[in-house]
Design a binder for these strands. Structure first.
Length: 548
DNA sequence: TCTGTAATAT
DNA sequence: CATATTACAG
């Protein structure tokens, strides 16, 4: 189907070793996992095997820019391939190849329709994997892929947009663009679209936190973000969006409990800024329950604390998901790996680049090499660990009301929260042991991670995260996540919470309880006896969305 | 030159 | 349609 043989590609590939292509294989069936991994290895891919989707996500978060492609089984116990694929796409924008014994056309179409780059019917045949690199690298339709090596065997993929869309109806203005484009087919830039992945957005927020919201202007944010290839315009755009988001939340908060308010909240929650990050909700709830939140009833106060970046410095945060409809791999772009970068304005910021976040571009621009500066950043850029007392400061969002708005709520959050980074208690679903089959040896390597310490085979140990809510529980046995308990299907955690909220038409007292069972709360907050009232939840959501 | 905002484009 | 890019005024 999708495998049009492109000879030029083939030859290119032949010259290019796959060892630069890092593939994650996910399958609950160890046998299958081993086999596929072995096959891939034979094809010279770099392979990391993971036994289940949950651990796979953990690993991806740990090494967000490490993998080029994910290959996953469809039928898996907890999180199936579809859900996993969706998550991977939204969070990492990585192409996902699905494998399944299910050869029904409907299933295949579902997989591809859901955004899978390719669908392999099991049993996986050796040759099936040979050309996997194409999916790893190419955003398929209408684009050509050029692989070029760069020092240190890191291959960089250059994706050139060849699709000259025939006509733009009303576009009229720019005449000379076409010329430019044709002229400089090789390297030169076309405007590419930055995809604000979770990771990138986290950096954005982290930058704002460091700078302080009032001072957070595009240029400064950009400098702090230290992202190769990112332009001030990109940041400005994102900032604009972010402010609008905050504004919405403010509005929502002012219409406390009314149906209108709920609508706004709904909209806000569904915006990409608040999409799909489980622990986000949980954490907020935790905070709330722990009494950390100080939300004034009228929501007239607050903002971020702009304190030192102590380990517990909170930051406003939001779950940030992708959006955009996706037609399979067409949507996936090659991340800028390693020390590549494409930076127009290299002026202000120092170089960086060892660890580009997941920033994808629709098309690649010229990429120059960049001196990797010390591994100043790791993969958990914004992991301010929240203690239980981080929420305090109230300050004005000066720059925010530059126009009209004066958001006011407590914003305290760690970016990491939403990522499930927070370690044990929050990322419960991810906690546990994992097994990796290291591709080189074929051996199983087992490990254990908890509380954020995680050292997958094949990588060095990654960051250590201290527990976020020390007083909640540090035990090994973490409480079940609400989301788990309730088997949130495709709706996602946000929708879960949201549904509970919106289904509740009685703003009064404890109307919220029925939807939000006490037992649930106890699970999350073993030490809490309190329940959330509807209004509290509203405020919480306000906080949540505003800060997260 | 930069920022914030609105208009466009995808 | 949501979001990214571009244009533009201050």
């Amino acid at each position: 189907m999708d495998r049009k043989i492109n000879t030029s590609k083939q030859s290119l590939k032949a010259e290019t070793s796959f060892d630069a292509i890092r593939v994650m294989v996910v399958d609950d069936d160890i046998i299958c996992l081993s086999i596929v991994a072995a096959m891939l290895k034979t094809w010279k891919y770099q392979v990391v095997s993971v036994k289940n989707a949950e651990d796979a996500l953990i690993t991806l978060r740990t090494r967000s820019n490490f993998f080029h492609l994910v290959v996953t089984d469809v039928h898996m116990p907890k999180m199936d391939g579809f859900e996993f694929q969706k998550q991977v796409r939204e969070e990492f924008n990585l192409p996902v190849v699905m494998m399944s014994a299910d050869d029904k056309e409907s299933s295949i179409l579902r997989g591809l329709g859901a955004g899978a780059a390719f669908y392999i019917v099991k049993p996986v045949k050796y040759d099936d994997l040979k050309d996997l690199w194409q999916y790893a690298l190419s955003p398929r339709k209408g684009k050509s892929v050029v692989i070029r090596e760069i020092e240190s065997s890191v291959s960089v993929v250059h994706v050139e947009m060849q699709n000259k869309k025939d006509s733009k109806k009303k576009a009229g203005k720019k005449v000379n663009e076409g010329n430019e484009q044709e002229k400089s087919e090789a390297i030169v830039p076309r405007k590419s679209k930055v995809v604000w992945t979770t990771a990138l957005h986290n950096d954005f927020l982290e930058a704002i936190r460091k700078i302080g919201l009032e001072r957070a202007v595009p240029k400064r944010i950009l400098e702090h973000m230290n992202e190769p290839g990112l332009t001030r315009e990109n940041v400005a755009s994102h900032l604009q969006k972010y402010r609008i988001f905050l504004k919405r939340v403010t509005e929502a908060s002012s219409s406390d409990g009314s149906s209108i308010g709920k609508n706004i909240i709904e909209k806000t929650l569904r915006s990409s800024f608040a999409t799909g990050h489980p622990s986000l909700v949980i954490n907020a709830l935790q905070k709330r329950m722990l009494g950390n939140l100080q939300i004034t009833p009228g929501l007239s106060a607050t903002i971020f604390s702009n304190q030192q970046a102590s380990s517990s410095n909170p930051i406003p945060e939001l779950g940030y998901g992708q959006s955009h409809s996706v037609d399979n791999s067409a949507y996936f772009q090659q991340p800028t790996f390693g020390n590549t970068s494409a930076l127009y304005q290299s002026n202000g910021g120092g170089t960086n680049g060892t660890n580009p976040k997941q920033m994808y571009r629709q098309e690649t621009q010229a990429r120059s090499e960049r001196a990797p500066d010390t591994m100043s950043k790791n993969n958990f850029p914004a992991c301010g660990i929240l203690g239980s007392n981080d929420i305090h400061d109230i300050q004005n969002m000066g720059s925010l009301n530059n126009s009209s708005l004066t958001p006011n709520f407590n914003c305290n959050y760690s970016v990491a929260d939403q990522m499930g980074f927070s370690g044990g208690e929050v990322s419960n679903g991810f906690n546990g042991s994992y097994d990796l089959i290291h591709e080189n040896t074929g051996n199983m390597n087992s490990g254990y991670y908890s509380g954020g310490a995680y050292s997958p085979a094949g990588f060095g140990r990654t960051n250590q995260l201290s527990p976020r809510f020390p007083n909640v529980n540090q035990q090994e046995n973490n409480p079940m996540l609400l989301s788990q308990q309730n088997n949130l299907g495709n709706g996602g955690d946000m929708s879960y919470l949201f549904d509970h909220l919106t289904n509740n038409t009685t703003p009064g007292e404890n109307a919220f309880h029925p939807q939000f069972a006490e037992s649930d709360l106890y699970e999350i907050f073993p030490n809490q006896q309190k329940n959330l009232s509807y209004n509290e939840v509203l405020k919480l959501l306000t906080f949540l969305t505003g800060c997260t």
